[in-house]
Every structure is written in C-alpha cells, then in structure tokens.
Amino acid sequence: MAEHNEKGRRAEELAANWLVGQGYQLRDKNYRYRHAEIDLIMEHEGLLIFVEVKFRSGTGYGYSEEFVDFTKKRLIIKAAENYIYEIDWKRDIRFDILGVYKDRDGNFNYRHFKDAFY
C-alpha cells in the first residue's frame, strides 16, 4: 500500500477513535458505492453522520475543508443516499469533515466541521 494510503487509513482510525471519545457511535467505515467512498459513518444524538476524513501534516497548504471539492461532495452524497436506502434510515442525516493534523511535535489535533455540506 502506498504511504499516503497508509497515512489516510491511520488518520481514519484516529478520527473514528476521537469521535467515539466525543460520544459518537461508529456504524461503518470505508463504505463504498460505485466510485464513491465514505470514510466514516457515525451515529450521534439521533443523527446518521457521514464523515469525510482529511489528513494534513500541517496547515501550510490549507485546511482540510478546502480539499473537499464539489465533485467529491456529490460522490459522498450519492453513496450516502444508497446507504440510507440499504439500512432504511428514516431520521435526519448530516455531512461532516474531520481534519486530522499532525503538529511539529508529532501530536495529532482535530478540526471538526459539522454540517459541512449538503
């Protein structure tokens, strides 16, 4: 596996653990539908939440939310629609972006953008 893929998977693990620590429940991860993938699917306070995880080793090139473009959002929404249909979800949903940042000391920090798009 390429190094950037390994970093991405590690960031998804860290993000899932961080969200669980915030009271979220992990329902699924790396859900695929056609050409789309949803990194994390969480449940929290009656909401089904689709989370796009972005890893950055710093903010010199911008923040995570800047790297989720229109096409990526459309793919995530299509995959989410299919997931909702598969599990027959009848309640509200939300789309979040969670940035995982590694600082100079090797510590991980998180920026959670709730209701980032739709």
Rank of each mutant, 00 (worst) to 15 (best):
Y61C: 00
V53N: 02
E52K: 09
R56E: 11
L48T: 03
Y33Q: 08
R27T: 12
V20N: 10
L26M: 03
E13N: 12
K78C: 08
G62T: 08
R74E: 13
R74G: 04
G60Q: 11
L48E: 00
R74C: 11
L47C: 00
E43C: 02
Q22G: 03
A79P: 08
D69K: 12
Y83H: 12
R56H: 12
W18K: 15
I41S: 07
L75A: 12
E81K: 12
Y63V: 07
E66T: 12
V20M: 09
I41L: 07
K72E: 09
I38P: 06
I41M: 12
F67S: 07
A16D: 00
G23H: 02
G46K: 03
F67Q: 01
V51R: 05
V53G: 01
E13P: 00
G62M: 05
R32P: 01
L48W: 02
A80D: 07
E45Q: 14
F50M: 02
L26D: 03
E13R: 10
F55D: 05
T59Q: 04
V68M: 00
R34I: 06
R27K: 12
S64Y: 02
L75Q: 13
Y24C: 07
N17T: 09
S64D: 00
L19F: 05
Q22H: 01
T59F: 05
L19Q: 00
L26A: 09
I41V: 15
Y33R: 04
Y83K: 02
S64I: 03
E81C: 08
K72C: 00
E43L: 07
E43S: 13
G58Y: 02
T71K: 13
K54G: 01
I49L: 13
E66Q: 13
F50T: 05
L26C: 10
Y31C: 03
R34W: 13
S57A: 12
R34K: 15
I49N: 03
E65W: 13
E52A: 10
L75M: 07
K29R: 15
Y33M: 05
K72Q: 15
G23D: 10
Y33S: 05
E52P: 00
K72R: 04
E52Y: 00
L14H: 00
T71A: 10
N30S: 13
K73M: 14
L40T: 07
L14T: 01
L40K: 00
A80F: 09
E13L: 10
L19S: 02
F70N: 13
R74T: 08
I38N: 03
A15H: 03
R56S: 12
Y83Q: 05
K78S: 14
K54P: 04
A36S: 14
V68E: 01
K54S: 05
F67P: 00
I49P: 02
E66D: 11
T59K: 11
G60H: 10
Y33N: 06
Y31G: 07
E13Y: 10
Y24N: 06
I76E: 01
A79M: 10
V68K: 01
R32L: 11
K29T: 04
H44K: 14
D28C: 08
D69G: 13
R27V: 14
E81A: 13
A80E: 06
Y83W: 13
Q25L: 15
K29F: 07
G58E: 09
E66F: 03
K78Y: 08
H35F: 09
N30Q: 09
R56N: 11
I49C: 03
H44Y: 14
G23P: 06
D39A: 13
E12Q: 13
E37R: 07
